[in-house]
Simulated scan of single mutants.
Amino acid sequence: MQDLTSSLKDVRGATCTANTPSDDVLLAQFARGDAAAARVLTDRLGPRSFSVALRMLGSRAEAEDITQEAMMRLWKMAPDWVSGQAKVSTWLYRVTMNLCVDYLRKQKPDRLADVPEPEDGQASVAERMQDKARKDALQVALSQLPERQRQAVVLRHIEELPNPEIAGIMGISVEAVESLTARGKRSLVAILSDRRGELGYDDD
């Protein structure tokens, strides 16, 4: 059995494991013409951008397009990047979020898409079916949140960013992040309340 918070963490698209060199160093190397640095930085940051876009848009194809555009913007600004001014990942999250918001505002609000998820080969068929049902339900529930609540929930509970970094990405105060996150999580619980038993969530 799972609670909603652990389920939100489970749907994170990818986790970066590389620790060295830093994003700043890699971006500076790319700006000097190092193609290998670009590949490493793409492998490190691309999945993060894609994870956010996927949870904001609910479509892999559209998330891939957003990620590609966000990374292209990163490469274009690389020569002007000032090390220490901000985190490269924070900059990319902000650009990804803005691209998603721009896209969503052009779409019909009732447009939802199925999001296929990778299956865990170690799980039983029944477990995989429930896991997919849970992830699909969460994606649909996320799509029903107000735009800012969805951003805060995705960044906090799926990307697991600290509130101060989220505040910087969203251009709001830490207190506002905390409020949006709390309201968003309460809304998700309410949306999913009728399916808690079916989806295998613990009762709080």
Rank of each mutant, 00 (worst) to 15 (best):
A38R: 15
I191K: 04
I158Q: 13
R44H: 08
T90Q: 01
N19P: 06
D203W: 05
Q151Y: 07
V115T: 15
R156P: 03
V140G: 09
M97Q: 05
F30A: 11
A141R: 06
A126R: 11
D24I: 00
T181M: 00
A152P: 08
E147F: 00
R111E: 15
D65S: 14
Q149Y: 05
P164M: 11
A31T: 09
L161V: 05
Y103V: 01
E119M: 13
A167E: 02
S179C: 03
P164R: 12
E159H: 08
A78W: 01
T17K: 15
R55E: 15
M170S: 04
G58C: 01
R150F: 04
R73T: 06
G200V: 06
N163C: 01
E165D: 12
Q144M: 14
R32D: 11
C100K: 06
L142H: 09
L99C: 03
K185Y: 09
L155V: 07
K76N: 02
G121L: 14
P118D: 08
D194Q: 13
Y93R: 02
L92V: 04
P79A: 05
S193L: 03
E62N: 01
L26Y: 07
L99P: 06
V95I: 12
A167I: 03
S6E: 15
D203R: 02
P21H: 10
P162K: 08
A63R: 15
D102R: 07
D202M: 09
R55N: 14
G58T: 08
T5P: 13
L54S: 14
Q107L: 05
Q122W: 09
V153I: 09
P162C: 08
S7M: 11
M170W: 02
E127D: 15
A123C: 06
M72F: 01
R94P: 00
L104E: 12
E147V: 09
D136N: 11
A137E: 01
L26Q: 07
L112I: 11
S173K: 13
D102S: 14
V88P: 09
A176L: 10
T96V: 05
S124C: 00
L45M: 03
V115C: 14
G58I: 07
T5S: 03
Q107H: 03
L199P: 03
V153M: 05
Q149A: 07
T15P: 05
Q85H: 04
A70D: 08
S22N: 10
D204R: 12
L8Y: 00
E62L: 13
G58H: 10
D131Y: 08
L142T: 09
S193M: 02
A35M: 12
